[in-house]
């Protein structure tokens, strides 16, 4: 597994993905300028932009690295040489996942440090009305990272059942969108509002089922708390981490089970 992990990381770095991230990270330089367009919350806007930029970069990585990682090996016929080694497919999957995960974590760390510098800078330019909560910022970045690791596992799951990259890429993007909205849809459906009552019961049931199936990504969003320095409930964080561990493990286990039975033809 470590051997696969290492070559996965090597592959990502050799593909100059990190250089691409550095170029995107140049956008951070513009953040204080854009932030100063705000009337009353320059620092807040800078934090919003920074965290969203991190989130966006991690999303791209999760979708494109996670979605093509397994597919590429099959497409380029690497699977024959790699799976002919005495490695179990499960350890291959886990190695691949860990490689992607490690890269995502490194990126998050790198961008997180840049964000801290940018916010310090913006804060110096326009002192904020409320103190910046650095702990919340770190929590926001950490949970964003967890969220995208989960998304990588979803992309892996899609890769294990598909022979092309369409399903992994577009499936993962859909899960990302729906997963961010599922909580609100669920809340709305259970708000007892008049508009909901006219919906057929089947629709409500199906939506509720989907709510439990699709990963609840909104739970990982602590950006507002970081931007406005709101308090974060420890219990909520603990439950979210637990949820993450279990959901990601299930996704990887399913991926491994399906991949074990898959034919390399």
């Amino acid at each position: 597994m470590t051997s696969i992990l290492l070559i996965t990381l090597k592959g990502i770095f050799r593909d100059r993905v990190f250089q691409g991230i550095m170029v995107m990270a140049l956008l951070f330089l513009f953040i204080p300028t854009i932030g100063s367009l705000s009337m009353r919350q320059v620092t807040e806007l800078s934090i919003t932009l920074s965290l969203s930029l991190i989130s966006f970069i991690l999303l791209l990585l999760a979708v494109f690295l996670g979605g093509t990682s397994l597919w590429k090996d099959i497409e380029k016929r690497y699977t024959f040489s790699v799976l002919g080694l005495p490695l179990s497919r499960t350890s291959y999957i886990l190695g691949r996942f860990m490689g992607n995960a490690l890269f995502l974590c490194l990126t998050a760390l790198f961008l997180g440090v840049i964000t801290l510098l940018v916010i310090l800078w913006a804060k110096g330019l326009y002192p904020p009305s409320r103190p910046v909560r650095w702990d919340n910022m770190m929590i926001a970045v950490l949970f964003d990272t967890l969220k995208y690791l989960l998304l990588v596992s979803v992309a892996f799951f899609f890769s294990s059942v598909s022979t092309s990259f369409f399903l992994p890429i577009f499936g993962t993007i859909s899960v990302y969108l729906v997963g961010n909205a599922s909580q609100e849809v669920y809340d709305y459906l259970h708000s007892g509002s008049q508009a909901v009552k006219v919906l057929p019961g089947m629709v409500v049931k199906a939506a509720s089922l989907l709510y439990y199936l699709i990963p609840n990504l909104a739970a990982f969003d602590y950006k507002l708390q970081a931007v406005y320095g709101l308090d974060i409930a420890g219990r909520g964080m603990a439950l979210t981490v637990l949820y993450w561990v279990i959901y990601t493990t299930i996704m990887l286990a399913l991926t491994a089970v399906i991949y074990e039975r898959r034919e390399m033809k």
Partner: peptide, 20 residues
């Protein structure tokens, strides 16, 4: 996978991680 512990395998038209 243990069956492949002592096997050297050369696939047909092999391809190896080309970035290595």
């Amino acid at each position: 996978p243990a069956s492949r512990r002592s096997v050297g395998y050369l696939p047909e038209n092999p391809a190896f991680y080309e970035y290595l």
